[in-house]
């Protein structure tokens, strides 16, 4: 690929006390690709992603966003670049309906004399349209979140992150706990999102969750990137073997 990566992390190191969680990891993401970040618990996946999200800085290494060196000092700074996390536990508020959740913190208002009122019609319409664009069908944006299935809830979160200018969606175990059917649906949405030019990073310890949709797979093991390959070049079994440490990397 000749494109400039959206984000490039070079030789990232991170210590938690004396424990080295990341031992010099390189990681990059191009526009419009789905990357699986795979590894067992404690491999350093979450640490790497938290550095991308600006939760904490690396102890060593450099970060480039679209070719320019940057420091990601806070989650809001990282968001300004369009890196949108979608949390694995639901990030919706069950007492609010779909459109209120969708626009939470980014409400559209219209002025009426001195007061600003919510533009409910506009927000309902945008919510339906945005979700529809990536193939998510909801009957009514006024529905209670409580009435949605686990997969539907996650799809609302994903749709929201995508709609609000996400260039890279960061998903932590997005299909854990979902039924087979719902998993397929969520992965289907991710494919549609990819077609819009947005990139997706999927963190998982289960390669079978991402193998279907990923273009590229990076494997972490105890703080080191032990392998990185395009999907065509490997089978899920091989990747599982690498994660388990059975197979050495070429």
């Amino acid at each position: 690929m000749s494109q400039v990566p959206i984000i490039e992390l070079k030789n990232i190191r991170k210590f938690y006390g004396k424990i080295e969680a990341l031992k010099g990891v390189d990681f990059l993401i191009y526009p419009g690709e789905i990357v699986g970040l795979v590894g067992d618990n404690g491999a350093g996946k979450s640490t790497l992603v938290k550095i991308m999200m600006g939760v904490f800085p690396p102890d060593a290494g450099e970060i480039f966003v679209e070719g320019k060196k940057v420091n990601l000092r806070s989650p809001s700074e990282s968001r300004k670049f369009g890196f949108e996390p979608v949390y694995q536990e639901t990030d919706l508020i069950s007492q609010l309906n779909i459109w209120r959740n969708f626009f939470l913190g980014k409400e559209i208002t219209k002025k009426f004399f001195i007061a600003k009122f919510l533009d409910k019609k506009k927000m309902r319409d945008i919510t339906s349209k945005a979700l529809d664009n990536i193939g998510i069908k909801i009957k009514n944006p006024d529905s209670d979140i409580m009435a949605l299935s686990g997969g539907e809830r996650r799809s609302v979160s994903i749709g929201r992150a995508w709609h609000f200018g996400g260039k890279i969606l960061i998903l932590d175990e997005p299909v854990t706990g979902l039924s087979v059917k719902e998993t397929e649906k969520v992965l289907e949405y991710l494919k549609k999102i990819k077609k819009t030019g947005c990139s997706v990073v999927i963190i998982t310890h289960n390669i079978y969750h991402v193998y279907d949709v990923a273009d590229r797979i990076a494997i972490l093991d105890r703080g080191t990137k032990v392998a990185e390959m395009r999907k065509e070049d490997c089978t899920p079994e091989e990747i599982m073997d690498i994660i388990r440490g059975k197979k050495k990397i070429v």
Binding site: I93, Q95, L96, L104, G105, E107, L118
Partner: peptide, 8 residues
């Protein structure tokens, strides 16, 4: 909206 979210 914020108040309901904060309480929820």
């Amino acid at each position: 909206n914020w108040l309901r979210a904060s309480g929820g």
